[in-house]
Amino acid sequence: MTEKLTPREARQGERGMPVLKILIVALVLAMIAWAVSGMFGEATDPENPVGETTTEQDATGETGPTQAPTVQ
């Protein structure tokens, strides 16, 4: 024969602090992952990306903006 359960006993999970703890831990882990990926992105960022204007000296010794070489 089946056992009668109260509504509280039949629930799969409890409300309140356990759920809040899981949400806070997940948020903290997401912020840590974001910070790590940001530091990694800054560390691997090239100094002169392709297409960015750079300043170089020409044969006369004057400096001026030049366009970075592009592949065609």
Rank of each mutant, 00 (worst) to 15 (best):
G38S: 12
K4R: 13
M1E: 12
E9C: 02
N48H: 15
M31E: 11
K4M: 09
R11G: 05
A26I: 03
T70V: 06
E56Q: 11
A68M: 01
T66G: 00
P46R: 02
E47H: 04
A33W: 10
L5S: 00
N48K: 11
Q12A: 11
R8M: 07
E9A: 15
G51E: 03
W34I: 07
E3C: 07
W34C: 12
P69R: 04
P49K: 10
T44L: 09
V71W: 01
A68S: 15
D45K: 15
T6F: 11
P7G: 06
V19I: 07
E47G: 06
G64Y: 06
T2N: 08
A68Q: 12
T55P: 00
M39I: 14
Q67E: 15
G51Q: 03
L5V: 02
T2E: 12
L27A: 15
P49R: 08
T60E: 13
G13M: 08
L23K: 06
P46F: 00
M39N: 09
M31L: 15
T2Q: 10
K21A: 05
Q67M: 12
T6N: 12
T70A: 10
M17W: 00
V25L: 06
G16F: 06
T54E: 08
P7H: 11
Q72R: 09
E47Y: 01
